[in-house]
Design a protein around this nucleic acid. Structure first.
Lengths: 234, 234
DNA sequence: CGCGACATTGAGTTTATTCAAATACGGTGG
DNA sequence: CCACCGTATTTGAATAAACTCAATGTCGCG
């Protein structure tokens, strides 16, 4: 995977008032006078595949919302082994830990080309205190982070490797686009499911041979959801 | 494990102002006038081992802080297999999901005798909006829930069964009490670590034979942390 | 004392890992 | 445009780990 300098991704200052994603975004219910209270700009960035957005231990005093793309959150064990603890998609928020002034707890790395907005954490926090709508949205994001994490555990770290791969394929496939599913390297696949790269590869190859998935383009699969579900049900 | 009716555990109304745990608790920095704004009482409960505090799908419009004891949060897969996604100890908060008016997402069941406070969620939420200190504490709790969940994944669902058991023993052992560690049934052990009851039992027995842990009382072990750490490091 | 629940142990099987080799792929430079 | 290189994927064979199913042992309680 090629590496790109993380700093050259800036693409401009966001116009939150007119953001196309506002309904789904954190600022859904903010009013014009609320935006006026945000004095720092909301910067937009566009990261190519493979770029780190932030690293564990850093603190940018910023939180991020994903506009498009796919981001992995990677956590490292003391012994160096890594595990992907979550994937972030459009509408997800990350970096909330710096609300408490803490360091980021994960590496956040773009798995696909990814566009994000960078929000000044302190100001958003202050704004949230006087603004019930934003407060609610924030609570929802926290909640989502926790329930995502819980699903990650029960869904991706439980059962046979075959079941885990099937669950991931189903979760990643877009029902509004004919159950298409865009994936990524086998190593990342393994780091999500807690299995080795080889096992991940073997199972993907097997699913392809069985016709459960058809590779339309590089790492883009058409999934037979019903058949995959049967594998999960055992 | 014996079952107890969940309703007969009420032990009185809490006096938060004079709570011995207040420094570590959610209400650490609240002032007298803030407490006056809480119109519903904060009830205290005392649950024997094995008692459910709440069930997935219910909504008591209440959140809970654990005063003492140990609680498991259990999540169920559609196929019925269960997984323990977190353990709660003194100072932890749970049931925050009903802030958004949602149902509880897990079963919460006491693993040891457990004392809790039941807080009216809506009122706490309203109070938090006008109160930066409480707002901060809430954020910290969310944050802790997420990072606990992340550790659960990397620590307890990664590596060999032997490493997982060692990590759990270390995490559960109390360094201020001579590295003592109070555990629970082997089935719960397995449901935490994503291994079978038999494997959990085998490894615990092996650790006992090797002297890495010494059972002083029923499920209460003296742990040789250094030796366990060596197992983790491989 | 005996029952029931839980823990431990055993044997055989399945599953996933490890280590190694072979193959496909994308991008670069001639 | 093509040959080449490094990286990622796929496959193979042997090994190790964990699971299943079944039996036995242990403890507390009625």
């Amino acid at each position: 995977m090629k590496m790109v300098a993380p700093n050259e991704a800036w693409t401009g200052v966001a116009d939150c008032m007119n953001c196309k994603l506002r309904q789904t975004a954190l600022f859904a219910d903010l009013k014009e006078e609320d935006f006026a209270k945000l004095h720092s700009p909301v910067d937009q960035y566009d990261y190519p595949e493979g770029t780190p957005i932030y690293r564990a231990g850093e603190c940018h005093n910023a939180m991020y919302t994903i506009r498009s793309g796919l981001v992995k959150l990677v956590q490292y064990l003391p012994d160096g082994t890594q595990r992907i603890v979550r994937l972030l998609r459009a509408g997800d928020v990350t970096g909330l830990e710096c609300f408490a002034g803490d360091e980021y707890l994960h590496d956040a790395i773009a798995l696909h080309r990814t566009q994000i907005c960078r929000l000044p954490a302190k100001e958003v926090k202050n704004l949230a205190q006087g603004n019930p709508a934003l407060f609610n949205e924030l609570m929802k994001r926290w909640q989502k982070a926790v329930s995502d994490a819980d699903f990650w555990l029960t869904g991706f770290s439980t059962g046979s490797a075959r079941q885990r791969v099937a669950r991931l394929l189903i979760r990643m496939s877009d029902s509004s686009a004919g159950d298409m599913c865009r994936l990524f390297g086998r190593e990342d696949l393994g780091d999500i499911l807690g299995i080795t790269t080889e096992t991940a590869s073997r199972i993907m190859a097997e699913f392809k041979r069985q016709g459960l998935i058809v590779e339309n383009a590089q790492n883009t699969f058409q999934c037979d959801i019903a058949a995959l579900q049967k594998i999960i049900d055992g």
